[in-house]
Amino acid sequence: MARAFRLRIVTPERVIFDEQVEMVIAPGTEGELAVQAYHTAFATSLKPGVLRVRKDTANTFERLSCTGGFLHVLNNDVQILADASEFANEIDVERALKARQRAEERLVSQQDIDVMRAKLALERALARLKTVGYEEDK
């Protein structure tokens, strides 16, 4: 673990993750990005998607959902400010499926709805589903 750094994933409600890791891959608004140790000082916003975290090169990636937020790197210390985030095994698939359906119906019906909001809801649902490996390619 020579090239490790501290990764913290926090939401307004609580600290989700706080450990030494080797690499994290995050869905930046300008494209997916990976952060490893000794990354330069950096800040970006995140879009809804999957966070992948690896504690060691020998390990597999752990997956967390992220419904948007920020990533901030400073002095080999990475902080992710997520609006909401869950480990893959914490995700309520049923609920995410329902949310997706609801959002899709709203977008189709086009009746006096907040299109932006429905789209965001859809993206959040898709981010969660993607995290659990549901519908990998959509």
Binding site: G28, T29, E30, T40, A41, F42, A43, T44, S45, G69, F70, L74, N75, L81, D83
Partner: peptide, 20 residues
Amino acid sequence: HTEHMYEPSPDKLLDALIPR
């Protein structure tokens, strides 16, 4: 204050940052 790299630009970042 260390010099940061920002993505997207700081003013766009503010749009997302202020509400949060």
